[in-house]
Design a protein around this nucleic acid. Sequence first.
DNA 1: TCGAACCTTCACATACGTGTGAAGGTCTAC
DNA 2: GTAGACCTTCACACGTATGTGAAGGTTCGA
Lengths: 122, 122
Amino acid sequence: MRIGELAERTGTSRRLLRYYEEQGLIIASRGANGYRDYDSATVDRVIQVRGLLDAGLPTRIIKQILPCLDKPRAIYFPDATPEMLATLEEERDRMARRAECLLRNRDAISEYLDAVREYNRV
Amino acid sequence: MRIGELAERTGTSRRLLRYYEEQGLIIASRGANGYRDYDSATVDRVIQVRGLLDAGLPTRIIKQILPCLDKPRAIYFPDATPEMLATLEEERDRMARRAECLLRNRDAISEYLDAVREYNRV
DNA sequence: TCGAACCTTCACATACGTGTGAAGGTCTAC
DNA sequence: GTAGACCTTCACACGTATGTGAAGGTTCGA
């Protein structure tokens, strides 16, 4: 698949797809003419990357957690240094805290909306 | 409380506290000398704002959801226009999606870490 | 064979959160 | 009264994710 199709299927501009590649978040092989050629699994990968970016993670961190997300495990574990594992744990906890924060505030909004609806009903 | 104390109690630079005020996220009264004077509740407010910023929300959105977060309700509901309510619902759902994404990826990281530990144990 | 629609790289631009420093006013303690 | 610690506004700068456009090569259908 070429970049135009990937862009359409992920709702992402070509510019950003090239940027994600530059940041090491996706990879593309090249045809004889230099055009990028994407594996169909890249669609899910891009969607996942966008979700994480939208959740506030910078590309630098996303790149670090991507190896965890491949199923089945493509990476052989000996590659994982203790520092990498520590970073991952830290980042995992950070994500949990972010999620908690979001859910707490989501609940507050819901509660507020309920109160407003109640008010308007009377 | 003046800006220095608030900065220390929230772990936030003075520069950012002024920025948050400029963005309408916190308010400060002014002493006769022009110094900002903060209510003690501002500490929690700043911490909440930082959590939301860290979770990827821009100040523009945070400003919109802040009225939901005051307890007890300081805002009288008639102020809430239908458009505001729609925006809030939308943003609430967006936050839920972000949280989901984070939790899903947190789980994937945990799983990966478990697998690595298992590998290293053998 | 020509034009449209795709692709390439390169580069400049913007919004946003944040850092930093200048130039100057205020307060407190010695 | 002066030194130091606080405050003020203003402005320039940076990193990151993104937009946009130029200049040019490729592919494909009429």
